[in-house]
Design a protein around this nucleic acid. Structure first.
Length: 552
RNA sequence: UGACCUAUGGUGUAACUGGCAACACGUCUGAUUUUGGUUCAGAAGAGUCUAGGUUCGAGCCCUAGUAGGUCAACCA
């Protein structure tokens, strides 16, 4: 996985198993339930499962855990496949737990025949009561001692649709006093007269997670079934079914799920944000979903790098979202094309520059990449710079434009601020400057050294674009610690729309999936909402800003 | 009145399975820079939850605590 870090505990287990000859090669699986979109936490699991197989030789199946037809939809299947592919992984087989419904049904019958499963007519409430509590043993169901024949008959009747939803369930017969709650006669099948996204109306009984997941693993000869910590108590049951059914001995291993600062990572909460319109959808650029991050401008490389850096262990963790941001910046710095865009314009007039003249200047596409080439930038008498790059009364270490001060205009000339034009209220309308003709970029003979360099756009040729700036979705670092409703901590300023920013003309031809660095402003990418006459850019992440930090 | 998992700088992960705690992010200096970006050089920051024990030697082993997490959906 990583070459700088030691192996994580799963890599150690796998290496040991392979060395011991327990398996000849590795088979892992990524098992999403198609009832929501994938998020960055899933990316950790994907990188882990696919990464393990790649590292040790083997393959990974994509298996949809589609055992609950009332919450699952085909739209989710498609988004999940797209996200896994986009992250850069290729599964060996595309499989569905529903592919195994016949086999699972046969497994159930086998357990009934062995006297290890029974049909229970108890209500959900009664079953819950029978379970006992973690500290108190449960009690046997009155239906627990039905004969094998009766169980077989009724279970068959359940399958053929004789009973309504909830009338009966099939339970494993284990031990109602077991210290592990999951071993207290867990449910195997329930009745649901519901249309399944793949099997249609063929079934009206559906297996529960515990009776589907492990058996699916075994059917596929998964060697290492990797899941998150909350499934630890299920492992005993996982092993029990495999043992009693005498199946391929897949083994389950658990790691700690990813948590990140200033966001939530549960499908339930994310779905709530979508349904209650706190965000525009699953792919809102503020969402920690793969589709949201993609729309925001994150690259698959940066996400994989992130997953690599956070490591894999068994303890609860809360990763600083700053690490994710570091990963994209590092990637994008090397690859993003540079452009100049003024988000908050202030007009500058170069009083000694000829009126009507437009001069084409050259700027490199990416200074980090000597082969990236260059683009042309128009320069003229009237320009825009950022409001924040001018101060009438500048503090001591202010390197930008101020009365009497000189700055370099990136790729252009050094200018000097001569005059400030205000209206009756004292609001600054424009700044008048003079330029130094012999200070042109690349052929500067002026001998003048300036501290500050500003980005700018020629007013006459400027391209109007909409820019969307994003901030953290929540104001709370650890949202799980939130008292009351987590949505009370949503950041009201997580989205800032700038309807009209001024861009250099080269941005006119920007395409989706292209990433740009707007000089001194951050990394941006075209949003899918863009049209020919309305160009929209999302800010992926800002640049590190020592100056802003000092200001705080 | 239980079972299980976990415990290392601010965050996350390491430590050749017993040999004087490392890496990354973050933070702070300084240099370079036509992006206050990048790059480069350097610094601070934990003595490994606590108490015992074994050992020449313990973050790693043992015992007992403490703290956090998980488990009682016809969800996965």
């Amino acid at each position: 996985m990583s070459d700088t870090k030691g192996p994580n505990f799963l890599e150690e287990i796998v290496a040991k198993d392979l060395e011991a000859g327990k398996y000849k090669s590795l088979v892992t699986r990524f098992p999403p339930e198609p009832n929501g979109y994938l998020h960055i936490g899933h990316a950790k699991s994907i990188c882990l499962n696919f990464g393990l197989a790649q590292e040790f030789g083997g393959y990974t199946n994509l298996r949809f855990d589609d055992t609950n037809p009332v919450t699952e939809e085909t739209q989710y299947v498609e988004s999940i496949k797209q996200d896994v592919r986009w992250l850069g992984f290729q599964w060996e087989n595309e499989l569905y737990a529903s592919d195994y419904f016949d086999q699972l049904y046969a497994f159930a019958i086998k357990l009934i025949e062995k006297g290890l499963a029974y049909v229970d007519d108890s209500t959900a409430e009664e079953i819950a009561a029978q379970k006992g509590t973690p500290t108190r043993p449960g009690t046997n169901s009155p239906y627990r001692s039905r004969s094998v024949e009766e169980n077989l008959r009724i279970f068959e009747e359940m399958r053929t649709g004789k009973y309504p939803d909830g009338a009966k369930v099939l339970r494993a017969k284990i031990d109602m006093a077991h210290p592990n709650m999951h071993m207290r006669d867990p449910l195997m099948y329930r009745i649901k007269h519901a249309h399944h996204h793949r099997t249609g109306d063929a079934w009206c009984i559906y297996p529960m997670y515990d009776f589907a997941h492990g058996q699916s693993d075994a059917i596929e000869h998964i060697t290492h079934s990797v899941c998150t910590l909350e499934f630890i108590p299920h492992r005993e049951l996982y092993d029990w079914f495999i043992e009693k059914l005498e199946l391929f001995p897949s083994r389950q291993y658990e790691f700690a799920r990813l948590n990140m600062t200033y966001t939530v990572m549960s499908k339930r909460k994310l779905l709530q944000l979508v349904n209650e319109k706190h965000v525009s959808g699953w792919d809102d650029p503020r969402m920690p979903t793969i589709s949201g991050l993609r729309r925001r401008g994150y690259t698959p490389e940066s996400i994989r790098d992130f997953c690599d850096r956070i490591g894999v262990a068994k303890r609860e963790n809360l990763i600083d979202v700053g690490l994710l941001e570091f990963c994209v910046r590092e990637d994008l710095n090397k690859t993003a094309l540079r452009r100049m865009v003024v988000l908050d314009p202030l007009k500058v007039v170069i009083t000694n520059y000829p009126e009507g003249k437009v001069e084409m200047l050259t700027g490199e596409e990416n200074p980090e990449d000597p082969n990236s080439g260059s683009r042309e930038i128009p320069f003229s008498r009237e320009l825009y710079i950022e409001q924040e790059d001018f101060m009438e009364n500048a503090p001591k270490k202010y390197f930008r434009l101020a009365p009497g001060q000189m700055v370099r205009l990136k790729h252009a000339y050094i200018i000097k601020c001569e005059d400030v034009v205000k209206d009756a209220q004292g609001t600054i309308l424009e700044v008048h400057c003079t330029y130094i003709p012999e200070s042109k970029s690349g052929e500067d003979t002026s001998g003048i050294n300036v501290k500050g360099t500003l980005h700018w756009v020629s007013a006459g040729q400027a391209l109007p674009i909409e820019v969307r700036l994003y901030d953290r979705l929540f104001t709370l670092e650890d949202v799980s610690e939130a008292e009351g409703d987590f949505k009370e901590h949503l950041n009201p300023d997580s989205l800032q729309v700038i309807p009209t920013a001024w861009a250099e003309p080269a941005l006119k031809t920007a395409g989706l999936d292209e990433r740009y660095q707007f000089l001194r402003k951050g990394y941006f990418t075209l949003d899918k909402d863009s049209t020919a006459d309305k160009i929209i850019f999302n800010r992926t992440v800002g640049l590190r800003d020592m100056w802003a930090k000092k200001g705080q």
